[in-house]
């Protein structure tokens, strides 16, 4: 092997190592996580106590279930779509697909719209729900790092100031 070939190989290996070190958020978020809310204004979403995250699936299709002591905050199933790093509801199958009902979800028709996007090492999950026109728009940011995952949750509702909290969750046993 010549010096230039060795140098090129070293660069390729260094690149691979650097790539491996950067956590791919979908793979790195898989599992069950829990912990206390670190930073929450009084009366905010989630209630007092521990929060829990369950994440399962692959880079093409995954499920997220994020819950506080008061119940589910954000949950949904997502699959890769046409746009890179943007995930939407899984495409319809069977009769619904035959009838031309794709994966389009219109929140104005009463069904919450959930989607997600990947931004480097962070995965962000969204949910828009309309109850009688009073919207609730949730944004959940997940940033895994080894055996911990950082979460930031924000809720925007009609005619109310936005509420948000942050937490660092630990991987918990299955």
């Amino acid at each position: 092997m010549t010096l230039s070939t060795r140098t090129a190989t070293a660069f390729v290996l260094a690149g691979l190592i650097a790539g491996a070190a950067a956590a791919e958020p979908i793979a790195a978020s898989r599992g069950r996580w829990s912990g206390p809310i670190a930073d929450r204004p009084a009366g905010g979403p989630g209630g007092a106590g521990r929060i829990e995250l369950r994440f399962d699936g692959t880079a093409d299709r995954f499920t997220v279930d994020f819950a506080g002591p008061g119940g589910s905050l954000v949950a949904g199933e997502f699959s890769a779509g046409k746009q890179k790093d943007v995930f939407g509801p899984p495409a319809a199958k069977g009769l619904m697909s035959f009838l031309g009902r794709g994966s389009a979800v219109n929140p104005l028709e009463g069904k919450p719209l959930a989607w997600a996007r990947r931004d480097g090492e962070t995965l962000i999950v969204y949910r828009l729900d309309l109850h009688g026109g009073a919207h609730r728009l949730d944004r959940l940011e997940l940033k895994p790092s080894g055996e911990r995952i950082g979460v930031v949750f924000e809720r925007r509702e009609h005619d109310r100031a936005p509420e948000r909290f942050a937490a660092s969750l630990e991987r918990s046993a299955r």
Binding site: G81, Q83, V86, G88, G102, S103, A104, V105, N106, P107, L108, L113, W115, L128, L130, G132, G133, A134, H135, L137, H158, D159
Partner: peptide, 26 residues
């Protein structure tokens, strides 16, 4: 055609309450 929010179609709605009229565009 079906509204495709994930395809970039805007979703717009309005709410009337005691205070007035609120129009949202998402």
């Amino acid at each position: 055609e079906e509204v495709q929010p994930l395809g970039g179609d805007p979703v717009r709605w309005a709410v009337q309450d005691a205070a007035g009229l609120h129009v949202h565009s998402f």
